[in-house]
Amino acid sequence: MQITVNGVQHEIDVEDDMPLLWVLRDELKLTGTKYGCGIAQCGVCTVHMDGLAVRACQLRAGDAQGRQITTIEGLGTPEALHAVQDAWIEHQVAQCGYCQSGQIMSVASFLKFKPNPTDEEIDFALSSNLCRCGTYPRIREAVKTAAAKLRGEV
C-alpha cells in the first residue's frame, strides 16, 4: 500500500491492520514517534493526519492511506523549528523527553482551534498526554509561549 508521511509517499508492504505507529517506527524508521502504551492512554505516539492529532497506535495503516501523515520529524527540525518546538526549547520542558514528541504534536494540533487557550483549556487538551517525569508546569508555560509565537506576538 502507499502511505504519505511528511510529504513523502512510501510504498510499504504491511497488513492493513498494522498500527501506523509500527509502520512509522519499524518500516520507515521514523522513531521520533514513540511507543508507550499501545491503547491510547499515554499519547506519546501522537502524529497528525490531515493536520489533526491522532494516536498512531490506534490508527491502522489501511486507514492512513490517501491521508497526509505528519510526524514530529515533519513538524520541524533542529534547523527549522516549529513554533511549538521553539517554545519547548525556550522553556526547557523536557526531562527524559520520551513523551515530548507526542505533547508537541498534540499542542500543534490543538492551537489551530484555540489560538489563545486558558489554563483550563490546556488541561482539557493535554490531560490525555501522560508525562511520568512531571513536566506539566513547564508544558503549560510553553503552550502559552507557543500560542503567542503562532499569533505573531513574540
Binding site: 517506527r25 519499524d26 524508521k29 522513531t31 521520533g32 514517534t33 514513540k34 511507543y35 510526524t71 514530529i72 520529524e73 520541524g76 527540525t77 533542529p78 523549528l81 518546538q85 519547548w88 526549547i89 526547557q92 520542558v93 523536557a94 523527553g97 520520551y98 515530548q100 514528541s101 508537541i104
Partner: peptide, 27 residues
C-alpha cells in the same frame, strides 16, 4: 544552563534505546 539534549528531545531526533535500528535487525 541550556540542557544539551533539549533540542533533540523537542524535535524527535534523540534516539533512545528503543529507537535504535541496525541493518537486518530482527525484532
Amino acid at each position: 544552563m541550556k540542557r544539551l539534549d533539549v533540542v533533540a528531545k523537542s524535535t524527535g531526533t534523540l534516539n533512545y534505546g528503543i529507537d535504535l535500528s541496525f541493518d537486518d535487525m530482527l525484532y
